[in-house]
Simulated assay, not measured.
Amino acid sequence: METLHVDLAGRSYPIWIGPGLLGDSARWRALIRGRQVLVVSNTTVAPLYLHSLAKGLEGLHWSSFLLDDGETHKTFANVGRVLEALGELGARRDACIVALGGGVVGDLAGFAAACWMRGIDFIQMPTTLLAMVDSSVGGKTGVNLPVGKNLAGAFHQPRGVVADTDLLRTLPQREYRAGMAEVVKGAAIGDPDFFAWLEANADALAAREQAPLIEAIARKCAYKAGVVSRDETEQGERALLNLGHTFGHAIETAGNYSEMLHGEAVAIGMVLAARLSERLGMAGAGDTARLVALLGRLGLPTEPSGQHPASRLLELMRLDKKNSAGTQRLILWRGIGKAEIVAHVPEAAVLDVLLPG
């Protein structure tokens, strides 16, 4: 098992990574300060793992709220339903939400926790690879709107992250591959040695071998924990974690959050960001080729589907939260491990990489 910490001003929380953690209630139950718990999960995960979690909640006053599965259910309406469930539980200020699920569950449950009585505790228990390596760490919570992804939300840090790698055994192959995109992203942003390690271990990771998988999760979480500790509310360095996301979110939004998984869109977005970096003279084609090759070996897409006009994708990119004063502000790179924030990116260059071919 690996233990990491996110160290913030005046507070810290653990990230536990390894097998058997869901059943290790002596470890995570200490994070629950009150007697009331609402478990938020979904209709896919709950039948598999809610009974195991329930054993660790014995003696507490708890209930569960289940979402339908999928990105399309990360909405304000469902936040309202979680808040109603907290009301029915009679939740006080020392109540706790446990988010048992992937990124949708974690983001929505965390946002509800931030809203109830202006902030109660929550614990992340991610059940997907993508959630383990990215969304469960760092305190970003929120929901999607028809005009854009994650445009409503709050920074609200969890009490802890319990990443039980045994839960990945039931994760569908497509979801597993999507999670690998976020692992690659961390290396592409700021760790060229980790990127080379991923290239050397790509086949083992694709086969879900446990030892390299746990190491990959831990290395990605350690990198993100360091960034979050230095820049909790994304005033500077933390924005680098969005490499590929401006393109990727536009692709997701254009498809009404139902055509592509988040990690698939991010994989394509990273490639587009790398190509744009080439066009702007910031990086060479060799780094883009290495990125495309690694993503391909991990079973991820690297090209847009062509279903949505480039002009539509550019329009959606203008709504990105990193933009300011009406100008495009993107995360690009100067090669593997050298991402940076670039302001005033010419829209003509962005449109150029979005066009087919």
Score class of each variant (00 low, 15 high):
L89S: 08
R118C: 07
A113S: 13
D107Y: 08
A109C: 03
G103Q: 00
G101I: 05
R81E: 13
C115W: 11
D121P: 05
R92L: 08
D94N: 15
R81P: 02
L60Y: 12
S64P: 09
R92Q: 12
G101L: 07
R93D: 00
A114Q: 05
D121R: 14
F122D: 09
S63Q: 14
G110H: 10
L60S: 08
L89V: 06
A114C: 08
M125Q: 06
R92K: 13
W62Q: 08
F111Y: 12
V79S: 12
D68E: 15
M132H: 05
D69N: 12
V98Q: 10
A114H: 03
L66S: 15
V79L: 10
I120T: 02
G101V: 07
G106Q: 00
A85Q: 14
H73R: 11
F111V: 05
D107C: 10
I97R: 02
H73E: 13
G80Y: 02
T72G: 15
V105F: 00
L83G: 06
G103C: 06
E88V: 14
G106I: 06
D94H: 12
E71R: 03
S64I: 02
Q124E: 08
M117Q: 15
A85P: 03
R81G: 01
T72I: 14
L86T: 03
G110F: 04
L83C: 12
T128K: 01
L108A: 08
S64L: 06
F76G: 13
W116V: 00
F111M: 04
